[in-house]
Structures are given as C-alpha cells and as structure tokens.
Amino acid sequence: MTLVVLDPGALTTVQDRGRRGWAHLGVPRAGALDADAAALANRLVGNEPDAALLETTLTGVRVRLEEARTLAVTGAECDVVVGGRSCAFAEPVSVRAGAEVQIGPARRGVRSYLAVSGGLAVAPVLGSRSTDTLAWVGPPLPQAGDKLPLGPVAGPPRAADVVVRRPREAVLRLHRGPRADWVTSQAWDALDGAAYTVGADSNRIGLRLEGRAVERVERGELASEGVVLGAVQLPPSGQPVVFLHDHPVTGGYPVIAVVDPDDLGVCAQLRPGEEVALRALGDRRRSHG
C-alpha cells in the first residue's frame, strides 16, 4: 500500500488544502498552489477534496505504485507514462501493481498534481499533510527511495466528469491592499494594465514580479503585520512580490494590493521569464472607524 518515489525531480512536495488556524503561532498555511487543479485530480480518482497528493515542479516525478490503484495528473500539462505506455492527462488511469509512473516535464505551466486513489497517508502535522517550504512544518520532502503510504480507496473514479481545460490568461486582478496609500496614486493607476516579468527566484513562498518599479510614498518603517495569501508586498526595490501558500504569516513591507483568490492558480503556473499583466479591480476601499 505504498507509492515509491523513484525520482522526485526538481521539487516534489506532498500537499493537501493546507493547515488553517495556526497563523498566530507563525505557521504558514502551505497547501497545493493550484488548488483547483489539485481538487480536480482528487475528484477524478474518487478522493475527498482534502486528500494529499504530489505537487511537482517543472521536471515532473517518477514513482512506482506497489498496489493497483487509479491515478490522475492535472495542473501543468505534461506526458503521463504508465508502465511504458502513454496515458491521458487529466483523466483517471488504472495502474497495475508494480507499474512505474513517469509524469512530466511540464509542457506549459509549472506545477502538476499526481493524485492516487486513497490519497497519500503520510502522518499529518497540525491537521495537514502539506509540506511548507518556508518553515518546514509538515512531512519531509520526498526523496528517491521513499515509500509513501496510501490510504484506503474512498470511492469510485469519476471518469464521467467532463473536463474543459481552458488556458488561463496571464492576468492577475488586484484588489486595493491595506497599505495602498504607501504608493503614489499615479503609481497605483499605472499598475492597472502594467506588464511584469516573472522573476527566476519565484517559488512556493512568493511570485516575484520584475519590471517598472512601483514608486513608494515615504512613510518610514511599517511595524510587522499579518499578511494574507495573495498579498502583493512592496519591498524598497519597488519590485512587487505576490505571497503564495508558504508565505511568512507576518511581514514588514507594505501590502499595496491583494491578488483576487480566483487568480492564485494563475500564479501557481507562471514560469520565470513569462509576462503577466496586472489589472486593478474597481472595488472601492472599504474603511471604517
């Protein structure tokens, strides 16, 4: 009842929907970066939506299933090869015991999800099986030779699901952030429609945007404050950083915008060097007190 990791590739982590309720102790939420893709993979193999699966990074992963199971691969599009045979992407695939599974490298996008019926049953930490790559709470990184236990099969695969895969536009819609007044109004207006390039050091902690520096209003030092998923932080360099699932729970740079939660999956699949457009949402700042 195990999945044997043969080659973890560049970075493969175990993820579920992440841990909630521990931010006040300094624990990042972690969880699958492309939550919709992960949920789809679980649904295709008949798992509950919070089942743990593998998240790969660009290069994919090679594993062996020691027991006959169903698997599905979603997220970044890639080849799925089971026992030497090419199989469908984003569809349930029956795998016999002992078969080798090779997924990746990604043709477009960054992160693919490999769900196996029954889910990965590694020991949860603080209620979640997600590995966070900032504080390293959660299961350790899978290494070649590691055997990850599989849970009992929950339900039948949902082969009937019609999966429509539309390439998502490389657009991030921005809400005004709690410190939007730390940039000039011209700088805020200029963000709407601006194009940025994804930085090479982007990772599960943050998506780094490189381009025209966003001009700050000089307001001195900001005391550290709680930060949300999708927060767009502005360091002194003026190059924005979008906080992704492994982000630190507090930060001392102003959060000038917040990426709409529906666009976080876009962040998960943007490659370094790709261009992304920003769009300011018209929501008025709600403020009281």
Partner: peptide
C-alpha cells in the same frame, strides 16, 4: 481602524 484586505480578510 478597519481596512478591507481583499475579499475575505480585514486588518
């Protein structure tokens, strides 16, 4: 002082 932070949070 309460400030909205995206659709689901407030500071």
């Amino acid at each position: 002082h309460i400030t909205q932070v995206g659709p689901r949070a407030a500071l």
